[in-house]
């Protein structure tokens, strides 16, 4: 059985999580969001299931039906735009969320992500947000910034906020 210290040592302590804003798709984030043949750069299927499970809780009340996929893709694009050492730290964060023992004992998610319920995920986010362990607070912050940027960078998110989008120039 791994101790909490070992888990943190191997998974998070080296740098824990980081954070992000914005999206990068080499030249055109717009293209990334629309491309029907988008190929994920960073997130594999298991990572995507995690983001897809967290997004409706992180963005509760903000996501219209079918928008989760946009957040998942936006998150991938956002991570792809970060320096390699930051990407490596995000990789560690996803490692902690994927590995069943750390998922259960560090995140407190007892079911596989695709069957975890919203209450359980909200409790996990809240637990990390107020954790005395600074690395867990920074991991929460990373998820917060990634998913918020992935959604609110997308014009589909703007109408309820009243933000009209950029003005016309030229």
């Amino acid at each position: 059985m791994l101790t909490r210290r070992q888990l943190l040592g191997g998974g998070l302590a080296a740098g824990a999580a980081l954070v992000i804003a914005g999206l990068a798709y080499e030249f055109s984030p717009d293209r990334a969001l629309r491309d029907p043949h988008y190929r994920f750069v960073i997130l594999d299927e298991e990572d995507r299931a995690i983001v897809a499970a967290i997004a409706p809780v992180m963005l509760a009340g903000a996501l219209p039906a079918g928008a989760v996929e946009q957040v998942v893709r936006g998150t991938d694009v956002a991570i792809a735009g970060l320096p390699l050492h930051v990407r490596a730290q995000i990789r560690q964060l996803f490692g902690v969320l994927r590995f069943p023992l750390t998922r259960m004992f560090v995140a407190g998610i007892w079911h596989p992500w695709h069957s975890a319920n919203a209450g359980e995920i909200a409790a996990f986010l809240q637990h990390w947000r107020y954790s005395p362990v600074v690395q867990l607070r920074s991991a929460y912050d990373a998820l917060h910034q990634l998913l918020m940027a992935a959604w609110y960078g997308n014009e589909q998110a703007w109408p309820p906020t009243g933000y009209p989008g950029p003005p016309k120039v030229g």
């Binding site: 804003a21 914005g22 999206l23 990068a24 055109s28 984030p29 717009d30 936006g74 956002a78 735009g81 940027a149 609110y152 960078g153 997308n154 950029p166 003005p167 120039v169």
Partner: peptide
């Protein structure tokens, strides 16, 4: 410069 955060921040 298209005044889009999703483009400006990464670039």
């Amino acid at each position: 410069f298209h005044m889009l955060e999703r483009e400006a921040y990464p670039q």
